[in-house]
């Protein structure tokens, strides 16, 4: 019996054939090859530089020379709590982030609900388009457009005048904290722009979460005697929590770190992002900039833990 009858039609093994067999026999090798490039990228360029940045928050700056002192310590981080203006910046940014997140959730929920339960086929596609359309244009363009809309002689103001609601606008603007000389130079205006800009990031996760709620759970609830409002509070809302949590992580962290919008619209008064930007750039106080960038990381981590306790990730 010769070789050709015992192994019919099997071509001679070459390099590629051997490599394929090796990968087939050792699946982990394939995984390593697949993941090594992205992990290297993430590890070196992202995590590496992030850790380096965080390390800087333990350094401090010499008040006289303006040079960085490479001695590890907590003096820079302590400034976040000891200097009242720094505390103000953190509270201001945090309050804005919370307000924007709540507003986004409240506005996004009905839209996501409609898209998940009522919109079908073509209507649904149009709604997706409407939600995503703003993301196609530059964020800067939209923010500057809002400045014009909210300006003293802008569209919003004209609108109030036309409807004869000027006193209402003036009343709102005369309120403490959120008011100001005009919408474009008040925290209210900034809040509106933030809410507008991040809204799609809240709608889509909520819509996706509601889409995944089996329709027969709603029928089962109704079957067991629950009125629509009870079904909403007991079944639909709890099952949408993961979506709201995912969306809120977007809106919350995006607001926490943004440095453009507070500079273009709103009252004077720094936000975390702006501080980081100016401290590391114009001022050259890299340790303080690093210390400020630790704040969102800590807050987001705390927030994620809070959301996890709510059970937002149970469905994952």
């Amino acid at each position: 019996m010769n070789q050709s009858t015992s192994q019919p039609n099997l071509p001679r093994p070459n390099f590629w054939r051997r490599a394929s067999s090796l990968l087939y026999e050792k699946p982990w090798l394939g995984l390593v090859l697949l993941l090594a490039p992205p992990l290297l990228w993430l590890g070196v360029f992202y995590l590496g530089s992030l850790l380096n940045l965080l390390f800087y928050s333990f350094y401090s700056i010499d008040d006289f020379s303006g040079q960085i002192k490479y001695d590890l310590g907590f003096s820079t981080l302590a400034q976040l709590f000891t200097s009242s203006s720094n505390v103000d910046i953190v509270t201001r940014t945090l309050s804005m982030s919370i307000a924007v997140t709540i507003a986004c959730a409240v506005i996004a929920f009905p839209i996501g609900y409609f898209m998940a339960f009522y919109a079908k086929g073509r209507t649904k596609a149009i709604w997706y388009l409407l939600v995503l359309l703003p993301l196609w244009s530059s964020y800067l363009v939209r923010v500057y457009a809002w400045r014009l809309i909210l300006a003293r002689e802008g569209v919003a103001s004209w609108f109030f005048d036309t409807l004869g609601l000027r006193p209402v606008l003036d009343g709102i603007l005369s309120l403490p904290v959120i008011g100001g000389p005009s919408l474009s130079s008040s925290y209210l205006g900034m809040f509106l722009v933030f809410t507008y800009v991040w809204l799609p990031y809240m709608i889509l996760p909520i819509q996706a979460a509601l889409e995944r709620v089996p329709k027969n759970l709603i029928q089962a609830s109704s079957d067991l005697g629950a009125r629509p409002a009870q079904t909403f509070w007991r079944i639909i809302l709890p099952l949408a929590v993961p979506g709201v949590a995912a969306g809120s992580i977007f809106t919350f962290s995006l607001t926490l770190g943004d440095y453009i919008i507070p500079g273009v619209v709103g009252a004077p008064g720094f936000f975390i992002g702006q501080v980081v930007y100016t401290q590391q750039g114009a001022v050259g106080n890299l340790p303080l900039a690093a210390a400020f960038s630790v704040v969102p990381i800590v807050i987001i981590t705390g927030y994620l833990m809070f959301v996890k306790r709510l059970g937002a990730f149970n469905a994952l």
Binding site: P214, N216, L217, A220, N314, A315
Partner: peptide, 8 residues
Amino acid sequence: QDYALFPH
């Protein structure tokens, strides 16, 4: 048919 138990 598929029980429709409330998962949460």
